[in-house]
Design a protein around this nucleic acid. Structure first.
Lengths: 191, 191
DNA sequence: ACTGTTATATAACAATTGTTATTTTACCAT
DNA sequence: ATGGTAAAATAACAATTGTTATATAACAGT
């Protein structure tokens, strides 16, 4: 008996997601989303009890998009080099998302940095293939690699530097190889 | 004949500066500042035509504080190593300021990154003392060092990592030396 | 066609914030 | 003491935003 629902939960989330993608969370409010959908604010509050609830849904999508970049298929990690490039590519393609996930103070950040949980181990293992280090050694070296990668990504997300995909690949690739060589040399000397 | 001015321009700027230091620009508004000063909003709008004007003053102070970290005395740069450490120390001592200056998209960022203008050249020269590179070579190498430094600073500012001063010094020092060694080795091979 | 259900529109409320009009008050010269 | 001047308090306006009350309208089953 009720009229058909013209504005679905999905549609609302999608519009909010697009707005956040372009301008960040700050620009998102009920009326703005409604305008974009061509409706009043009612459909929004009919589908979500509060704006916060909607924002949370969008946040989920943002994190999912990030994972899409870091994984290929079911929980399978990309190669070590590809992981770094993907991280930067994500910052380049979705600068607002990158800022939300990695450039704000949140207690969750520590976990997300280097995807510490389940994937963390696999990243180290992926790195071992390049370095030949023991697990513990690679863990230490990986911190340096990831700091460098994170540094580029931050600069890209804020548009402070604007390198092409090729420039990034060369910069990251060369730098990691140089860091690896230097690291090995200095380790040798310590003995 | 008029009553003495109880709330000076300086006082207002100082209170706003402290608020931004603790919580960032978002938390600053006329009533909040007034409350902190123990007065109404009138003194604020008596001294500044708009809030934006006040915010600009605060922004100036923030940038001045940053320069205070990077320079010692009149326009004199610190040593190359000390520059990197100071950059990170600034991010640690004033995370909100660091985020404002270097983690937002602004057209000004490109200039500020590596203090490109007058100081940029001096940084390269300072770096040459460590590397022994030609000016152009050091310029290329410096980008990598600064990306790494910036990476640490960003992680510190967002409290994603919480290293002690000693840990930072060791991490940055070792890493730069390793990068330098690796860079030199790889340059040799190219020939 | 009529009715009940509910999606949507309209409009309003409350809180927040920049800003300003009006009133009050402090203080120095008289 | 008094009065003029300007600083400050009070209170209000306007815009923005989350949220909600009320009215309207669409649609399936009768």
């Amino acid at each position: 008996m009720p009229p058909v629902q013209r504005y679905k939960k999905e549609d609302i989330i999608e519009v909010a997601y697009q707005l956040v993608k372009e301008e960040g969370f700050d620009c998102v409010n009920a009326r703005r989303i409604a305008k974009e959908l061509g409706c009043s604010v009612q459909p929004i509050f009919h589908n979500f009890t509060t704006m916060e609830e909607l924002i949370n849904e969008v946040y989920q999508r943002i994190y999912a998009k990030y994972q899409e970049y870091m994984l290929c298929g079911e929980d399978k990690l990309r190669s070590y080099k590809q992981l770094g490039l993907s991280y930067i590519q994500f910052a380049s393609d979705y600068p607002e998302f990158f800022k939300i996930l990695f450039m704000k103070r949140t207690d969750l950040n520590v976990e997300k940095f280097m995807m510490a949980d389940a994937l963390g181990d696999n990243i180290i293992k992926a790195g071992q293939e390049l370095s030949g280090f023991s697990y513990e050694e690679q863990k230490k070296f990986h911190v340096k690699v990831w700091i460098f990668t994170h540094g580029i990504a931050c600069l890209v997300a804020t548009k402070t530097i604007q390198f092409s995909k090729n420039e990034i690949e060369e910069l990251l690739g060369n730098s990691v190889l140089e860091m690896l060589r230097g690291y090995k040399k200095n380790q040798e000397e310590k003995k």
